[in-house]
Design a protein around this nucleic acid. Structure first.
Length: 450
RNA sequence: GCAGGGGUUGGGGAGUGGUUAAACCCGGCAGACUGUAAAUCUGUUGCCUAUGGCUUCGCAGGUUCGAAUCCUGCCCCCUGCACCA
């Protein structure tokens, strides 16, 4: 597929996308065309930038001819993974989970190729299909039998929780069995032999690998060097991605209002573009490797650019453009660039009211009625009382104005108590409230016919 | 259940009758520099109709001119011991 690497493993390796892998993962990925899977938790109805590494992992697998399966955890989502959590997770309602599963499925379609006529079409499978149906007795006999309590108790995710006051419920404790069962099911029904996931999942992932090997390979935990063990060793493989952090050690994805999602209604293409555009120099190349499909030669070119002409920000621009295009398409990228140009030249009048509406899906929105205007509503009141939380309080606004941080429609504001007029609204419809350099919110003027 | 310790502004953590909207650190927000970066520096970080006023220190009540600071009751948390195994 690619002229640069012999197989996915090498590709992923070069991208620093492998934190752990089973011993024979490289060998098998380079020799066979396999079916692999990655699970996603349906805790929200949209995926977010933190999911990009696993998504791109599947995309790369598919490009090298392997068959990707996405498991959405409609069943496991009802239990909750204790990994990385200090508290018992609250259980989600079934219908919310199902809704989230549908949303995630749709988003994945812009990454993976689901065309059924392909030799390796991607597919989405909901583990609720079996988890909600399996009987307790059957589960305990077929799955539980293969797990040792002491191993399960040894898990770090379990340990940390047991050390705390809150403890861990049996329900969450069982999570590792359910995840392992997924792998077993996929192995049996879809000939899936390879699991991928984040390094925080590595323990759970190995649980699945082990289960498959025991059930189908006759491997026994107590005889690690037996012939059975050796034969079983080729049955199931796995790989884990590293936890992505910024160069300053923060968890990737942190930004105003949390991690940007891949849903244009929650995070506009503009915001996603900006998120990646603002990547610091030290992170730009690592991110290009992890998140984009750009070729090695191209990335190396950009790497040089970062060193030689950092102020051009060629790497950040490519990163932002690539990501915006893969998530939101050419039109999304187009929009993101147009809005960026207008906003960072303070020439907001270049944008129409409807463009602003599309550009700021995630911004705070407020509304003011013509009657309010007639009453001489002040800027402070519009922005706080009617602003839906864009600025916390009049005091806050006062401080920001004093620091010269507030712009209305691109012009620095000096008087927070001045009454508004219809001239403050672009196209007589919308006012852009800018707080600092990068944060924009909108106030709409309600039309008479509502 | 008994004995100790503790609950302070986003987090950590000072403060034990007035000069305390409450030190300090972190975090947040903004400004400067630069490259819409990082680092650094600066300002700011309860609310308001703002040279003043109001509301905050687990909850409720009380003492006092005056309380986060003292008293009473209640709630919650931690640490020992006991009970239970």
């Amino acid at each position: 597929m690619s002229e640069e690497f012999n197989n996915v493993y090498e590709d992923l390796e070069w991208r620093n996308a492998i934190a752990h892998a089973t011993p024979r993962a490289r060998e098998i990925l380079s020799r066979d065309k396999i079916t692999c899977y990655n699970g996603f938790d349906p805790t929200a109805k949209s995926l977010h930038v933190g999911n990009l590494v696993p998504i791109m992992g599947l995309v790369r697998m598919q490009r090298y001819g392997h068959t990707p399966i996405v498991i959405v955890g409609g069943g496991t989502g009802m239990i909750g993974d204790p990994s990385g959590r200090s508290d018992e997770r609250k259980l989600l309602m079934v219908d919310i989970i199902d809704e989230n599963v549908a949303g995630i499925q749709q988003q994945l379609e812009s990454f993976l190729d689901f065309t059924p006529s392909l030799s390796n079409p991607a597919q989405v499978i909901n583990n609720a299909d079996w988890l909600r149906k399996v009987s307790l007795i059957e589960f305990l006999r077929d799955v539980g039998k293969h797990f040792s309590i002491s191993t399960m108790l040894g898990r770090e995710s379990v340990q940390t929780r047991m050390d705390r006051e809150v403890g861990i419920s049996f329900t969450e404790f069982s999570y590792q069995l359910l995840q392992a069962y997924d792998f077993l099911k996929l192995y049996e029904d879809h000939n899936c032999t390879f699991q991928m996931g984040g390094s925080d999942q590595w323990g759970n992932i190995l649980g699945g690998v082990d289960l498959v090997r025991r059930v189908h390979g006759g491997a026994v935990a107590d005889e690690p060097d037996s012939a059975n063990r050796e034969a079983a060793g080729s049955l199931a493989q796995a790989l884990a991605y590293p936890l992505i952090t910024t160069s300053t050690g923060e968890k990737f994805g942190k930004s105003i209002g949390g991690a940007p999602t891949l849903d244009p209604d929650q995070t506009s293409p503009y915001r996603l573009y900006q998120f990646f555009y603002n990547t610091t120099d030290a992170d730009a190349v690592p991110y290009l490797k992890l998140f984009t499909l750009l070729k090695k030669t191209r990335i190396e070119e950009l790497e040089r650019a970062v060193h030689e002409a950092p102020r051009e920000r060629a790497a950040q621009q490519s990163l932002a453009a690539e990501m915006t295009r893969t998530v939101h398409g050419d039109r999304g990228l187009e929009e993101a660039r147009r809005v960026t140009n207008a906003l960072f030249s303070d020439d907001l009048r270049k944008l129409s009211a409807s463009e602003l509406r599309g550009a700021f899906t995630e911004a705070t929105h407020g509304t003011v009625s013509p009657a309010d205007l007639a009453d001489g509503i002040t800027l402070a009141s519009a922005v706080t009382v009617h602003g839906g939380g864009m600025i916390a309080s009049a005091s806050d606004l006062r401080r920001l104005v004093a620091q010269g941080a507030v712009k209305i429609n691109g012009k620095v504001e000096t008087d927070p108590l001045r009454p508004l007029t219809s001239a403050d609204f672009i196209d007589d419809q919308v006012m852009v409230v800018q707080r600092g350099k990068k944060s924009h919110d909108l106030i709409w003027l309600e039309t008479d016919q509502r």
